[in-house]
Design a protein around this nucleic acid. Structure first.
Length: 421
DNA sequence: TCTGGGGTCCTAGGACCC
DNA sequence: TCTGGGGTCCTAGGACCC
């Protein structure tokens, strides 16, 4: 049994590069929504000292002095590129788990007898040739070891971006001892600190700690991570994604919101977008929550971070129903005199397939379903947001968002195709 | 001045029941 | 006045991931 983990290098920055060769060999960063934080960095940007997750305003000087190229995030582009990378991998391997927008686990078991190292090099070069995206591939007998191998593939140039976790005991101990415990997949900063207090510094230390001890200090998740490092498989490949349980739509405001009518529009627009997504997936939600938050970095200002929820009986995905509930909850949460920085809507208790009707429903479910179908079809063909509830106002697309450095949606909008001059 | 968005899982503790 | 024990269910909060 063997897993491979294919991980796109600096994915968002690489996507930007595919369509704009000017960016090649230059420091490039991609920003989060609202142009707030750095969420991707090219190799060159890492080298000049820009940190992952760093607020942009903190690295203005580096950006200026090293002529770092800045892009707002363009998820339409990244999601499409991600699909292309996955279909390239599927060309070689049938059992693939899409783990995130830039990572996929592959089950190598059906490839038994083949030279895994050679196979992964073929995959890497095909993905690069067909999509323009460089990937690194780590191979290991558990997912956690494949992750470790992937780190080595990324950091050690001599691996040429493909690395197999060693079978040799001494060699594997060396690799584990060179991985800090907080860098292990599933162990973050907090747990890393606690492990260090217990004398566990490296992945090797964690692998050698008795599972029951790990469990008693942390929980079963940490215990499984330790076991996986020791070669005991705890996580299988999950080729079919588990049905989602929750769906959130939220945004920070470019400028703090102080008026209820603005907040109302934002909440209505989040509810609308959540409902669209839920219908697209064919689910209905049994509970709706709304949250509003002030700016936690401004402790000098009055803080108000609250949430409220209500049961949806019957479960639904009908936009007007969700908008109505969301705004009424929002209204109850709203406290005048605060500068709100973020708002969101969460749908939970999501179910798929047949739904249970309410005994005393006043709504005509069949009528709602037809109405939503027409709405979705129009928005699908004429562009998202063509038809939207009046409550969302004019800002239903961006929700007051700042995006000053956005690249075109090269692959998903005819009008934004790259031009060859 | 400016600080992302969207998920999952686990556990502790309270409510409630018998 | 004295005031049990064990089970389930739910939720909030904390940790992790990308």
């Amino acid at each position: 049994m063997m897993y491979a983990l294919a991980d796109c290098n600096n994915f968002y920055a690489s996507c930007e590069r595919v369509f704009d060769p000017k960016l090649v060999n230059k420091p490039v960063i991609v920003l989060s929504n609202n142009d707030g934080c750095v969420v991707a960095r090219s190799q060159e940007a890492k080298q000049v000292g820009i940190q992952m997750g760093q607020p942009v305003f903190e690295c203005r000087d580096i950006i200026r002095s090293h002529a770092v190229i800045v892009r707002s995030s363009n998820y339409a582009l990244y999601e499409d590129m991600s699909r292309r990378v996955v279909s390239a991998i599927l060309h070689f391997i049938p059992d693939v788990e899409i783990y995130s927008i830039d990572e996929a686990f592959c089950d190598l078991a059906p490839m038994a007898g083949r030279d895994f190292d050679k196979l992964c090099r073929e995959i890497r070069s095909a993905v690069l040739q067909w999509t323009g995206i460089p990937v690194s591939i780590g191979i290991g007998s558990t997912k956690t070891l494949a992750k470790i191998a992937n780190r080595v593939a990324k950091r050690d140039a001599s691996t040429d971006a493909v690395y197999r976790f060693p079978c040799d005991v001494n060699e594997s101990r060396r690799v584990l001892s060179e991985t800090r415990v907080e860098d292990v997949w599933g162990i973050g900063r907090r747990w890393g600190r606690r492990f260090r207090q217990l004398g566990v510094q490296s992945a090797l230390d964690l692998a050698q700690m008795p599972p029951s001890i790990v469990r008693s200090h942390f929980n079963v998740t940490a215990m499984q991570t330790g076991m996986e490092l020791a070669g005991v498989r705890c996580h299988e490949l999950e080729a079919a994604p588990a049905p989602r349980r929750t769906l959130v739509r939220s945004r920070s405001f470019g400028e703090a919101v102080k008026r209820w009518d603005e907040m109302y529009q934002a909440i209505a627009s989040h509810a609308t977008r959540a409902a669209e997504k839920l219908r697209l997936e064919g689910g209905v939600a049994g509970r709706l929550s709304v949250f509003i938050q002030t700016n936690r970095f401004r402790q000098d200002q009055p803080q108000h971070c609250v949430s409220g929820s209500c049961e949806l009986m019957p479960s639904t995905n009908t936009t007007p129903v969700l908008v109505e509930h969301a705004s009424s909850i929002g209204r109850q949460l709203w406290k005048p005199g605060h500068a709100y920085k973020k708002a969101g809507v969460m749908l939970s208790e999501i179910t798929f397939g047949e739904m249970q009707g309410a005994l005393f429903s006043s709504r005509d479910d069949a009528h709602d379903a037809r109405l939503m179908e027409v709405l979705d079809r129009i928005n699908m063909t004429m562009g998202s947001g063509t038809l939207h509830p009046a409550a969302t106002g004019r800002h239903q697309r961006t929700g007051f968002m700042r995006q000053e450095h956005c690249s075109p949606r090269y692959t998903t909008r005819w009008s934004e195709l790259p031009k060859v001059i």
